[in-house]
Design a protein around this nucleic acid. Structure first.
Lengths: 230, 230
DNA sequence: CCAATTCGAGAGCAGTGCTCTTGACAGGTC
DNA sequence: GACCTGTCAAGAGCACTGCTCTCGAATTGG
């Protein structure tokens, strides 16, 4: 079959429509997505969906993968838009972009970073795009190291097993990265994820009305921890 | 009816059995708990469950509340078991207890700190027990302040809105607590939650085999941030 | 033009939460 | 003991779910 045949084009559009409807339902109904509901939205029989996605999990997987890509794109684009030497600016831009994306797409964020669906196991395709946001943060630290703006923290407190583990990670993901700095970069990523999750999952209550400023301050604390110059 | 009548006792036992069976299913099936499966386990009709819990959400709420209490108990007990003046020891004990509880009860932890169930809204009863772990951490910082072991960080970087918000929180939860210190304590709590979630939800992959040591080091970073003396 | 492929719709299966009705049992009262 | 009253478990049934299968219609490539 020709790649551009009428059937192929209609099929591609149909897939897009299904995904769009599914995303719409995701926003209101959460992870328990109903295939029949999206079929109703599209005015088709529920069984017809199975012509395009072999199962509900498969549709979810596609949405998850695209969400990872979208988040990774957003973070990397925000980082790229800042002067390479402005480490702190890049740090803030990246973190804010992640939060902004999460606030704009809460259901998809919950799908990525919420509790895992019981029977569901993420395919290997997700690990690479999932690693892009933390890699962006670590890249900022690396650049600072390269330009001398950033001095690596002492690794004295690092227990030997952690040092070895982190050395392995650095070897495969960020060659030349000092382990102590890598650990602090990962702390920043953990903090970013925790902050967004707390805000999104309603754990922060209404106690802190100025969420943007609070977020910025907490992110600044981690920027200091990593050693980004002010 | 007498509170200790035979009926009341049998009923209480039945409720306990239902909760136990539900917890068992929770561990394998996650948040999508099946009432019918629980009923099957207990050898009773599904409709009979409704004599004890008005709905599935109500059963879930009960489990959530008890999980909050269990986690709070675990953290506070760990903190209380350490010499009051050993701030760092208390910090480590509290954080490790939270992680240990989460690893021992992953399904319940996911229920508490994973993505919120779509239609479900947590009742007000949960906010007090939910606040116990972070309050324990903040209490450690307060004690350090009282004994002079800990000097409050400067509040210079804090934007005014955040300072005001945090002052309100401090006024109602931790009177006399400097806002900058409160912010760092909350950062510690956020980091703790993020660390546990990453480990539990499989985001950390097999990249860091020595998870205990990694956890300890990241917790130590936050202890330093709060200013706990070594 | 025809065979092959693709597609949508419908029926149907097993499962779910939940409601309502029915019949059985225990508690206390006369 | 007889009698009511409140409680309980069970079953049928409703509307919903994911998913499979079959059947007729439409489109494609030869």
């Amino acid at each position: 079959m020709a790649a551009n045949s009428l059937r192929a084009r209609v099929r591609a559009e149909m897939i897009d429509e299904i995904k769009a409807a599914a995303r719409r339902h995701l926003a209101t109904d959460g992870a328990n997505l109903s295939l029949r509901a999206v079929a109703r939205d599209l005015g088709m029989a529920s069984s017809a969906i199975y012509r395009y996605f072999p199962s509900r999990d498969d549709l979810l997987t596609t949405l998850i993968l695209e969400a990872y890509v979208a988040l990774g794109d957003a973070v990397e684009a925000a980082d790229a838009a800042v002067d390479r030497d402005d480490l702190r600016g890049r740090w803030f831009a990246s973190c804010r972009a992640a939060r902004a994306w999460a606030l704009a797409n809460p259901a998809e964020y919950a799908l990525l970073y919420g509790s895992p669906v019981p029977g569901y196991t993420a395919p290997d395709d997700t690990v690479e795009p999932a690693a892009r946001p933390p890699m962006t943060l670590i890249g900022i630290a690396r650049d600072g190291l390269a330009t001398g703006q950033l001095t690596p923290p002492p690794a004295d407190d690092l227990p030997q097993p952690v040092r070895d583990d982190l050395a392995d990670v650095a070897a495969s993901l960020a060659p030349g990265m000092p382990v102590a700095l890598l650990a602090r970069g990962m702390a920043g990523w953990t903090q970013l994820f925790g902050l967004i999750s707390f805000e999104l999952f309603g754990r922060i209550k209404g106690a802190l009305p100025h969420r943007d400023d609070y977020f910025d301050h907490q992110i600044a604390l981690m920027a200091d921890l990593v050693g980004l110059p002010r």
